[in-house]
Each structure stands twice: as structure tokens, then as C-alpha cells.
């Protein structure tokens, strides 16, 4: 009995000690970690837009975040968007609720600042308050509209799809005509040496410059990449030649990775899904915004 009590007490004490050390460490590092993640995300975004290795980002460039929510009650479903209203210091956000047929249900202002809206929890609460009781809201995805001097130049789309093992998380950049201008694989757990090759340039760059028409029906072919095209994909030829190859192969399917056809197919289908769904959604959203004469920042 005495032994049991000593064991329990000592084990508890060691657990408490360990927890204190870990907790303290977490408190001291969490801010720096969040900051790093934010910087990395920004860096990925700008790289996708073509500002690589610290190239100067023009001041006229602005990023506007649009958050999409699925609003559901027992009877019906609708899609809610949180869009920024104007830009600058004195701005808020508008919540736009659109039903599945693309008809506006309601709009409501949301009083959140630009830093508050980045916090998922605060944002979710604000959306829940805007739709009122009896509805469930769940965050779907986030799109970033990029404007240059008020003119839209690109969209940055985040997305997730099933890979060979678990989810593959990507960020895509498309221009206003939905031509893919860049792709970055953010997270994946594919096999090293096989499926993990999806993050290599020679695979990712195959998607670059594919027009919307090609993306809609994109597939993979099981064939080796032609040697000259491979060189271009790895960036070993001049800028002009790369563009030439991109033009030549723009309607061509994606060459599958050796030994990783499933991963290659997963990525091309995932990209296809993200872009086609987005093109539909953004058209609906634009139509509603125009009809309602809503002042948004993009």
C-alpha cells in the first residue's frame, strides 16, 4: 500500500514537472512559430505570383482574402462568403449568403478588423452570429484575390485532395481566365522517392500555363517525359525556350511519375477539381456582387 502511494505521488509529480516544462516552452515559442508560418505562407503566395527570391513586390499589389463557408440547417444548404469591403484602415467585411442556385439570400456587414479575420475562431463566431440561430456553419476554404491597381490579376486557391496515402494540400495560382500560373505542394505524405516526387519542379511545372479548357479534361499519360521537355521543366534552358515548350505542351496531358501513377493522377484530378469548381463559384459570386451593387475591395 505504501509502495502504491509513493508510486502514484512520484509519477504525478514527474508528469506535472514534464507538463510545466512543455507548457513553458510552448508559451515562449508559440508567437515565433505563428509568425514563421505566416511569413512562409506569404512567401509561397508571392512565389506563385512570380516574385521569387526576395524580388521587390510593387506597392500597387494587394491581396484580398475571401472565405467560403457552408451554411446548413435541417432543410437547406447555402454557401456563405466573407468578403472584404473596400480597402485601407476603416474597413469591415460583408457576409454574403447565396443559395445553391446562385440566388442571393442576404448580405450582412461583419465588424472585424483585418487581423481579427485571420483568426479562425473569431471569424467562425462572427459568421455564426450573422446567419442567426438554427444554422450550422463550417469553414470550407479560403481564396485570395490578387489585384494590381484595383485590377484583378490572379486568384490564389488553397485546396486539399486525397493522394495515394493521405491528403495532399496545395496552393494554386490562376489568372482571371483560370489559366494555371503556378502550383505549390504545401503538405503531403507520399512515399519518398516515388509519390513524393510530386513536389519536384519537373512534375509541378508541367501544370504551369495550362489553359482552363485543358485543365477541365486534364489526365495523366504513362510515358517518359521527352528529354528536351524535361530540361525545360527543370529550368535548364533559357526563359524564352521554356515559354516555347509551355506553349507546345499546353494542351498535352500530364506525364505521370515513374512508379507513382496514382499520386500523379491524384494531383491532376485534384487540380482539375479545384479550378473547375472555383471558376463556377467565382462567377456566381461576381454576378451576385454586381447585381446587388456591393462595394468590395477587389
Amino acid at each position: 500500500m505504501k509502495d502504491m502511494i509513493t508510486i502514484v505521488v512520484r509519477l504525478t509529480v514527474s508528469c506535472v514537472l514534464a507538463a510545466t516544462v512543455m507548457g513553458l516552452c510552448f508559451i515562449f515559442t508559440s508567437n515565433a512559430k505563428k509568425h514563421n508560418e505566416h511569413i512562409k505562407e506569404q512567401q509561397v503566395m508571392y512565389e506563385l505570383l512570380g516574385y521569387k527570391d526576395g524580388a521587390e513586390i510593387p506597392g500597387s499589389l494587394a491581396l484580398h482574402e475571401v472565405y467560403r463557408y457552408v451554411i446548413s440547417s435541417s432543410e437547406k444548404q447555402s454557401i456563405g462568403y466573407v468578403v472584404p469591403q473596400g480597402h485601407g484602415e476603416e474597413t469591415g467585411f460583408i457576409f454574403v449568403n447565396i443559395d445553391l442556385n446562385g440566388v442571393l439570400i442576404e448580405t450582412k456587414p461583419i465588424a472585424l478588423s483585418e487581423s481579427e479575420v485571420l483568426e479562425a475562431e473569431t471569424r467562425n463566431k462572427a459568421v455564426l452570429a450573422a446567419v442567426g440561430p438554427g444554422y450550422e456553419v463550417s469553414f470550407a476554404d479560403q481564396t485570395i484575390v490578387v489585384t494590381d491597381n484595383g485590377k484583378r490579376i490572379a486568384y490564389l486557391l488553397g485546396g486539399k485532395f486525397q493522394g495515394f496515402k493521405t491528403f495532399v494540400s496545395v496552393m494554386l495560382a490562376v489568372d482571371p481566365a483560370f489559366t494555371l500560373i503556378g502550383m505549390e505542394i504545401l503538405e503531403h505524405e507520399e512515399d519518398p522517392g516515388l509519390g513524393a516526387e510530386i513536389e519536384q519542379d519537373y512534375f509541378k511545372n508541367q501544370f504551369k500555363g495550362k489553359p482552363f479548357e485543358a485543365l477541365k479534361t486534364i489526365n495523366v499519360v504513362k510515358a517518359p517525359i521527352p528529354a528536351d521537355y524535361l530540361k525545360a521543366l527543370n529550368g535548364k534552358v533559357s526563359e524564352g525556350d521554356i515559354l516555347k515548350f509551355r506553349e507546345q505542351y499546353k494542351d498535352h496531358d500530364i506525364y505521370a511519375l515513374t512508379g507513382a501513377t496514382i499520386s500523379s493522377r491524384a494531383v491532376s484530378n485534384g487540380v482539375k477539381g479545384i479550378v473547375t469548381k472555383f471558376s463556377y463559384r467565382v462567377n456566381v459570386l461576381d454576378k451576385v456582387l454586381k447585381e446587388q451593387q456591393l462595394a468590395v475591395s477587389f
Binding site: 516544462v21 512543455m22 516552452c25 510552448f26 515562449f28 515559442t29 508559440s30 515565433a32 512559430k33 514563421n36
Partner: peptide, 9 residues
């Protein structure tokens, strides 16, 4: 955990 957190930060 400590090393993981410190490295990440």
C-alpha cells in the same frame, strides 16, 4: 517536445 517547439520557432 521541447526540441520540436524550439526548432519550429
Amino acid at each position: 517536445t521541447v526540441i520540436d517547439l524550439v526548432l519550429a520557432a
